[in-house]
Amino acid sequence: MLPKLDPLLHSELRLGIMSILAGVESADFTFIKNQTGATAGNLSVQIDKLTSAGYINVEKGFKGKMPCTTCSLTSTGREAFENYINSLKEYLNAGAIS
């Protein structure tokens, strides 16, 4: 019986956001936007979904006089991301065996 993939992470943009945050301590909104190539509106929506699930932490502040939104992975998010990768590997292994 193969594990169910986390539907929240099984989306290209949300997975991209999680992958970026997995490799850094924290990243600001502009960096994530540039790396994913997403529009600001779409990115905000997906970040809200991940925040509501407790996967990422969002801090709003200022860099000089400019507003700055910084995102980081929570321990729940990191665990979910690791579980998701392990599930993907199981899918691939099952495919390789069958």
Partner: peptide, 23 residues
């Protein structure tokens, strides 16, 4: 099953590419 395998492969590829680009 094939779709799942393809999706799994694509997802892992996306994770790997995103991590490398970010790095």
């Amino acid at each position: 099953e094939l779709n799942n395998e393809m999706t799994a492969q694509k997802s892992l590829q996306l994770i790997s590419e995103t991590l490398n680009n970010s790095r």
